[in-house]
């Protein structure tokens, strides 16, 4: 069953220097329960695409359709933002319960649901802490728990681990794999990192440098459940070599474009 159907999405921004095409005729279909990773160079419009999927920004043209499960009252999507975006004025548990509260779920029930998610991300001890008392990795776990506690049809993740240091990122990748394995939600995951994309994804999609188009799709047939140790295997290294071949021209082009901007 196809869960997400994005057809011919284009996004054109008006700027002082004229029109900028961020996304050009980008289409994507995601199966129910599939974990899709979008990889592309900086400024390729992958975050823009995610924000269009999330309904936070309108597309200039094209259509989005997210299929809902029959008779479901679930929210259509929830986003895990790169910069955590958890409310500093709410305690950890109230942050996790935010979506439930907005949907009018009673206090007792939403606290219970939030608490069970905090246990899953190993933060139950910190339920009554404020975000300022947490580390970056813990904040992002709260952000992930907040999205999952709301139980959306699809989960959209915008470079969720991008701001973390390498070791914390590895720990959270393992945790994400473990949590995702339990209910195999449909996920669109944006990342810079090829390794992260291979480790997490069923499918890795490479986008071109600006304007963002679909360049190539790789099916990742590595067996699940996956573990962090997978990254040390020859099979993994081979895959990441192949994907890097597809990506490197785009990265170079994006980098050169940035240099040109600086020269201008």
């Amino acid at each position: 069953m196809i869960k997400i159907k994005a057809q011919n999405i284009s996004k054109i921004y008006d700027s002082a220097n004229g029109k900028i095409t961020a996304l050009d005729d980008f289409s994507l279909e995601v199966e129910d329960g599939e974990f899709v990773c979008l990889v592309g160079p900086s400024g390729c419009g992958k975050s823009t695409f995610l924000r269009i999927l999330a309904g936070l920004e309108p597309a200039t043209s094209g259509s989005i359709n997210i299929a809902r499960s029959p008779n479901s009252t679930k929210p259509v999507n929830n986003v895990v933002f790169q910069e955590y975006a958890i409310f500093p004025w709410k305690t950890v548990i109230n942050n996790v319960a935010f979506g439930l509260e907005m949907r009018g779920i009673g206090k007792k029930q939403r606290q219970e649901i939030a608490m069970s998610w905090l246990e899953k991300v190993a933060l139950s001890k910190f339920a009554n802490y404020y975000p300022s008392q947490l580390s970056g990795g813990m904040k992002q776990r709260v952000s992930i728990a907040r999205a999952l506690a709301n139980d959306p049809e699809v989960l959209l993740m915008d470079e969720p681990l991008g701001a973390l240091d390498a070791q914390t990122r590895t720990v959270l990748q393992a945790e994400l794999l473990r949590i995702w394995e339990k209910d195999r939600k449909t996920v669109v995951y944006i990342t810079h990192s090829i390794e992260e994309a291979i480790l997490l994804g069923d499918r890795v999609i490479i986008m071109t440098a600006q304007p963002g188009r679909l360049k190539e799709t790789f099916e990742i047939d590595l067996a699940r459940p996956r573990e962090i140790e997978l990254t040390a295997t020859a099979e993994f290294a081979k895959l990441s070599g192949i994907i890097w071949q597809a990506l490197k021209d785009e990265v170079k082009q994006a980098y050169d474009a940035q240099m040109m901007d600086k020269v201008d």
Partner: peptide, 24 residues
Amino acid sequence: VFLQVAKNFGANRRQTFWHVIVPG
């Protein structure tokens, strides 16, 4: 980004006001 979170998590105007704008 906090307003985007509110929107993404389905907050209506009144909820956005009390949960995001006032404390923010």
